[in-house]
């Protein structure tokens, strides 16, 4: 039960403004969910390097020596940028597994928010304006991003319960709605080895897509498959390293508005979220169809692909 936003830039000239545009979109949706807020930003990937976004409730202790300790363990020189309760660790891709294992073992109060070549996820309890300010999201540049402001329904109001949820490298998801078969799905996915951090239905959706993509589906295919397997009410906005997708459930009664121009594709729970975007008056604006998937990929010619179930 929430407000969700997403922005996928086609025009590189807008990339320096991604954080600013997405922040304003999310802040406009504050009324739809006052409990927690989060943003995922896809920035520029460094060749052969990956990023880990970490979160801690005691960042002073956990992050003070983390660079040193990780460099010992991985025998590399990781770069660590601390932003309030979060830290972004950059290290060679080959050291990722070792670094994650070390964090799990030695830093029990540290949570991994995201991992991947380009994604960084920042989320906390509180209003979008405060979360955005706390992590200086406005100054961030990138190619695409998604955001969420939450009105918690059944799972706890915690940092981990905030969206976006990331369950695979460079993958993340935000959700508006309420799934009705997530407990069974969670058990099924857990048996296949996926570790869940929360009781949140949206985390199950994220993990579901991750599992399908691990089987070889592309993002669009995984989203289409979700139409068969997920029950309830859902609108998802998802990101991958190069892709941006929207899925609307067959009932389609949660609000959703999309806009596309030559420079960007945008999603908002309400039109209000889109009014500050450049030249919005000239955009093609529509509501996604029920039981339909829309996605764009930077590695292909950018374009909409719709698949009605």
């Amino acid at each position: 039960m929430c407000g969700i936003v997403g922005l996928f830039l086609k025009d590189p000239a807008l990339e320096p403004r991604l954080g600013e545009l997405l922040s304003d979109m999310l802040i406009t949706m504050t009324d739809r969910g006052p409990d927690s807020a989060g943003i995922a930003i896809y920035g520029k990937p460094g060749p052969g390097r990956v990023k880990l976004t970490l979160q801690s409730d005691r960042p002073d202790e956990d992050f003070e020596t983390i660079a040193e300790r990780l460099s010992h363990v991985t025998r590399t020189a990781p770069k660590v940028a601390v932003k309030s309760s979060h830290a972004v660790v950059q290290l060679p891709a080959a050291a990722l597994d070792e670094a994650r294992a070390f964090i799990r073992r030695a830093l029990p109060s540290v949570r991994v928010m995201s991992a991947g070549e380009s994604v960084e996820i920042y989320k906390e309890i509180g209003l979008p304006k405060d979360v955005v300010a706390r992590f200086d999201i406005r100054s961030m540049r990138g190619t695409h991003g998604i955001g969420h402001t939450r009105m918690a329904t059944e799972s706890a109001v915690t940092t981990l319960g905030a969206h976006p949820f990331s369950t695979g490298l460079d993958q993340c998801l935000v959700h508006n709605g309420s799934l009705s078969n997530h407990n069974n799905l969670r058990r099924e996915l857990a048996r296949s080895g996926i570790i869940f951090e929360t009781e949140n239905d949206s985390e199950v959706a994220a993990a579901y897509l991750t599992a399908r993509m691990a089987e070889g589906f592309d993002l669009g295919g995984a989203l289409t498959k979700a139409l068969d397997d997920l029950d309830g009410f859902f609108t998802f906005v998802v990101g991958t390293r190069t892709g941006f997708g929207v899925l609307r459930d067959p009932i389609a009664c949660k609000p959703a508005v999309m806009a596309e121009t030559e420079r960007y594709v945008a999603f908002g729970s309400e039109y209000r979220a889109l009014v500050g975007l450049p030249c919005i008056d000239e955009a093609r604006i529509w509501e996604p169809e029920p039981a339909s998937v829309y996605f764009w990929d930077r590695d292909r010619s950018a374009g909409e692909r719709t698949m009605a179930a």
Binding site: M1, D31, M151, N176, G177, K254, S269
Partner: peptide, 8 residues
């Protein structure tokens, strides 16, 4: 549908 819409 849902509490976020109900608020409106």
């Amino acid at each position: 549908t849902g509490p976020d819409d109900l608020e409106i």
